[in-house]
Nucleic acid binder design. Structure first.
Lengths: 154, 154
DNA sequence: GTATCTGCAAACCCTTTGCAATAAG
DNA sequence: CTTATTGCAAAGGGTTTGCAGATAC
């Protein structure tokens, strides 16, 4: 079952409509595994000649999130960034606080954390969002040189 | 060394000014351990008779973050929420996706995750931000009743 | 004395919303 | 046929910014 079928089921169960605009947006979102924001998605679609309005994208996103197909990943530069989470293993983000480069990773320890939380607080855990912040090798080196002490950065 | 001293050092090292407005804002932020947003902080200060403008708060926040005293915790309801991270042990958030209730927790496994990442990607890790999402006990129960199947929710 | 900071209000920009026409079911 | 969806453009709301006066150092 692919993302379109999942969405079709989801939207019908809610008594809403499956439209060509929605299908096109979903296709575009799932065409890559990259993070995206509304502006980029919108411009990408226009460039390919797909007619959609930003309003339709903004109206669709909450549905995709509710359907479990898309997730907000972080808010940056004054707007939200998303990623699709179906057909692409869940992963977390390691961000360089200086150059903003992003690495993706997964760590099985997080499932244990979830399990412990579910037990301790009685929650039914639905997912998690982990962002680790730090300095990438290049920025560490750059910083080391600037400080000029000759002492390697920790 | 308290947060004001840390900030004073930080701001002087940058050649900027330590002003009574900035001090008042920092005092207010550190007066509780709760999350805050700009509006709440601003109204709280006005209520206490402290004259500050929102602009000064908005201009101070990036400095506090750079100084390592404050962190963005999540973007919700159209605006950012913050918390101070000095003099209060680091913790992560467990959020009910339905009623938005928030529990704080810490898990030592995260330090291991950080260590593994530092080694694998060559980063100098500065911190992390983990948000676990799920249904709190009350909302699980509420959902179970509504579905009315008699089957306890997983 | 000089450069930064403050408060105010306007500008900005992402997101949401009202509306009339269109289309799904 | 009814109700949801679309695109547009305007409104909304948090955040940023230009400016003139005040202030840290």
């Amino acid at each position: 079952m692919d993302e379109l079928e999942i969405f079709r089921d989801f939207i019908r169960r809610k008594g809403l409509r499956y439209t060509p605009e929605r299908e096109r947006i979903i296709r575009e979102i799932f065409a890559t595994h990259d993070h995206f924001d509304v502006e980029t998605l919108y411009l990408g679609m226009r460039r390919k000649g797909h007619r959609v309005s930003k309003a339709s994208i903004y109206r669709l996103l909450p549905l995709l999130i509710e359907a479990g197909l898309v997730q907000e990943v972080f808010f940056e530069d004054g707007h939200m960034h998303y990623e699709h989470i179906y057909g692409h293993d869940h992963h977390c983000h390691l961000r360089c606080t200086q150059c903003r480069r992003i690495e993706e990773f997964t760590d099985p320890a997080l499932e244990d954390v979830e399990r412990r939380l579910a037990e301790r607080f009685g929650y039914r855990v639905q997912g998690h969002k982990l962002e680790v912040l730090g300095l990438c090798p290049a920025c560490r080196e750059r910083q080391r040189r600037r400080s000029g002490t000759g002492t390697p950065a920790p």
